[in-house]
Amino acid sequence: MISIFKTNIGDEDELLSIANTLNNKLPEINWNVDLADCDRILRVESTSNFNDHIVSLFKKLGYMCVNLEVFYSAPK
């Protein structure tokens, strides 16, 4: 499953703060953020749906995170 989110992460320092939380709370996901994109896109790959949890974590940290799209892929 691949989920795409729009965020308001401003810079590398903010990204590091969020990275620590994501890595500690959701170690089972693979993720990256495109700070060069105007929507600061967060891309998450996982085997389960963590979308609500991710949005909640961002909100608790004081950031916006909106789920734009979810892609499902067949199991390997």
Results as ranks from 00 to 15, higher is better:
Asp11Ala: 11
Asn8Val: 00
Glu12Gln: 08
Pro27Ala: 03
Val33Asn: 03
Arg43Asp: 04
Leu15Trp: 06
Phe5Ala: 03
Ser46Gln: 09
Val66Ser: 08
Gly62Ile: 07
Ser17Trp: 05
Ile9Gln: 01
Tyr63Met: 06
Ile9Phe: 00
Asn51Thr: 08
Pro27Tyr: 05
Ser56Asp: 11
Leu61Met: 13
Asp13Trp: 02
Val55Ile: 10
Val55Ser: 14
Ser56His: 13
Val55Asp: 02
Ile29Glu: 11
Val55Pro: 07
Ala19Trp: 08
Asn32Ala: 15
Val44Phe: 02
Arg40Lys: 15
Asp11Glu: 08
Leu61Ala: 14
Glu28Thr: 09
Cys65Thr: 02
Asp34Leu: 06
Ile4Lys: 06
Asp34Lys: 09
Lys60Arg: 15
His53Trp: 13
Asn49Pro: 04
Pro27Asp: 00
Leu42Ser: 03
Glu28Trp: 00
Lys6Glu: 12
Leu26Cys: 09
Thr21Glu: 08
Asn32Ile: 06
Phe71Gly: 04
Ser17Met: 10
Asn51Trp: 00
Asn23Thr: 01
Cys38Glu: 15
Glu45Phe: 15
Leu68Arg: 12
Ser73Thr: 11
Lys25Met: 15
Ala36Met: 13
Asp34Glu: 08
Pro27Glu: 00
Ile4Asp: 03
Asp39Met: 10
Arg40Ser: 05
Asn32His: 08
Leu42Gln: 10
Ser17Arg: 12
Ile4Glu: 07
Leu57Arg: 03
Ile29Tyr: 03
Met64Val: 09
Lys76Ala: 11
Leu15Glu: 03
Asp39Tyr: 12
Asn24Cys: 07
Phe5Pro: 01
Ala19Met: 15
Trp31Cys: 01
Ser3Ile: 10
Glu69Lys: 12
Ile29Arg: 03
Phe58Glu: 00
Gly62Val: 01
Val44Gly: 05
Ala19Val: 06
Ile4Leu: 04
Phe50Val: 11
Arg43Gln: 10
Ser73Phe: 14
Ser56Tyr: 14
Ser73Leu: 12
Ser73Cys: 08
Asn51Leu: 10
Val44Leu: 06
